[in-house]
Design a protein around this nucleic acid. Structure first.
Lengths: 202, 202
DNA sequence: ACCTGAACACCGTTCAAGT
DNA sequence: ACCTGAACACCGTTCAAGT
């Protein structure tokens, strides 16, 4: 029977979670679907576009329900749901990072929009709210990609060197710590009159 | 005459800056050096290791002189020198991000160490200082990779859509804004008695 | 409209064999 | 010690031709 976009993305998700991003190739995907490689190019313009669609699916659960009211709770919730969604698939963070950077994921843009709204609600003026949202996203993607690569390196055997132990212990706590750092920063940004750095840097 | 590690890295830097990371392949590099592809594997274990060495060279200017005293000035200086170093080569941010994530760049670790020292100096306790340093690095790499990709997309023709204009205007100011956000966060973290979020989140 | 088959122009890595 | 040549097992993408 006919090949649909949905089937392609389903197969891509399975491939990704089973073997990782390096094995998510157009040829491998075609083989799994028992079609010729060229068939995929009827449904997707190129690999980047396909990966963008995969990214959207990974991020779906992170967008499932409305974020809570109150900008701090909103930022915290959006970040932790984003991280959870990324961790749910092998190499999820790496794939979404790439698609976000390439501007190929609608879902990623939606998440950015929620963070921007939260920053505005926190009292950050106009265009600055977008910058705040960007800063937060960079952190979550960077942190989670790092966490996930260590996790997988770890799972694939081998004791960790002493030195790295502090970096792998309680990632959730380390993550929340960074989020709070950003929230504290936003609070300081949003009320310039109480902000010492204004004098120093501007 | 003999092929030395130095020559390989020199050629790699030229290739990177002229054609970007996608064209920095082992085979292309070998062709440029007029050797067989296999020759490179006498000097480097694999491509990842070679890219790590390239990352170290990109970061060299960022480590050239000691950071200023005073933790805020130190964080600000390390961040802006890091960004400058990354922007000096085509796809520099992307390459260094990958090598940093893979733990293949000594220079990247050195920069992390400087930020950790600054955080400690700011009064952040023990292991938390490393987390702060990580948060800052994720931001700088994420921001700069994004900035650079927009720059290059831009340079390669095509007017930008209205919507994206706010994201491309004055990147240096946007960058400093994010750094200040982090600095403000660090200040709040370092003096918990004056930190409202302690009550809310802990 | 949707897909096959085959081609094009590449990859990273290995390794016997040469000097 | 250092490098060649050739092979192995792949890539993404295109496109005439088929149904």
């Amino acid at each position: 029977m006919q090949l649909h976009k949905r089937d392609v993305v389903d197969a891509a998700m399975t491939l990704l979670d089973s073997y990782g991003i390096a094995d998510l190739t157009m040829r491998r995907l075609a083989r799994e679907l028992k079609v010729s490689p060229g068939a995929l190019y009827w449904h997707f313009a190129n690999k980047q576009q396909l990966l963008g669609t995969v990214a959207d699916r990974i991020l779906e659960p992170a967008l499932a329900d409305e974020p809570p009211p109150g900008w701090q709770q909103c930022v915290t919730a959006v970040c932790s749901r984003l991280r959870d969604a990324l961790l749910a698939y092998t190499d999820g963070a790496e794939l979404v990072s790439a698609s976000f950077a390439a501007g190929q994921s609608r879902a990623a843009s939606d998440i950015l929009a929620r963070l921007t709204a939260a920053a505005t609600h926190a009292g950050v003026q106009g265009a600055r709210a977008e910058r705040v949202a960007g800063t937060v996203i960079y952190y979550v993607l960077g942190f989670t990609a790092d966490e996930q690569s260590r996790l997988q390196w770890d799972a694939a055997g081998a004791e960790l060197p002493e030195e790295q132990s502090v970096l792998t212990e309680d990632p959730s706590a380390r993550f929340r710590f960074g989020v709070r750092l950003l929230v504290d920063g936003i609070r300081a940004r949003s009320s310039p009159q109480s902000d010492v750095s204004q004098k120093i840097f501007e």
